[in-house]
């Protein structure tokens, strides 16, 4: 089979067709081919969590997937979260609770917490910490991230109840 392959997928709601080298990782495809540099690369062996994105609604390390494996999938990155500049409740909570400092780990953390809040709408602090164990942050000490996650969960629940 050829070293290049046609790839069709949806990224942040946009349908994309691109011919890519088969050895290109999904992370490098997002960054280098689509210029979506919000997805960061730290360790490139699946440990740090910086490159975490949502693939069909589930988090995945984009450094551990080949781009061609995402053929037919719906990928969401940090660029696909805010709509017309309006932050999601989760992103807003990060602003309000000092959920980031340097910001390097933030896109991966947001992907993880997006899946968490969809899976467990009312998470305990232990749940949040358990899920965050897959994302390494070296500057916040995590407390701000945990606070932001719990505040976002509450805001989303109250928002849903108010509708």
């Amino acid at each position: 089979m050829a070293e290049r392959m046609l790839l069709m997928l949806s990224v942040n709601g946009t349908e994309i067709t691109r011919e890519v080298p088969v050895r290109l990782t999904l992370a490098d495809f997002l960054r280098h081919e689509l210029a979506l540099t919000g997805t960061h690369l730290g360790c490139e062996h699946g440990v740090c969590g910086a490159c975490t994105v949502l693939v069909d609604g589930r988090t995945a390390r984009s450094c551990l997937m080949l781009a061609v494996q995402a053929d037919g999938a719906a990928v969401q990155t940090v660029e696909g979260m805010a709509v017309d500049g309006k932050l999601t409740p989760l992103q807003q909570a990060f602003v309000e609770h000092h959920g980031l400092q340097c910001g390097f780990c933030t896109p991966g953390v947001l992907a993880t917490l997006t899946e968490l809040l969809e899976t467990i709408p009312d998470p305990s602090e232990a749940d949040v910490r358990e899920w965050l164990s897959g994302n390494i942050c070296r500057c916040t000490g995590y407390q701000g991230i945990v606070d932001a996650a719990l505040a976002a969960a509450k805001a989303i629940r109250e928002g849903a109840a108010g509708e």
């Binding site: 050895r23 290109l24 490139e44």
Partner: peptide
């Protein structure tokens, strides 16, 4: 490119 070239099946 991180992994060396291979054929994909």
């Amino acid at each position: 490119m991180k992994p060396p070239a291979f054929s994909y099946h």
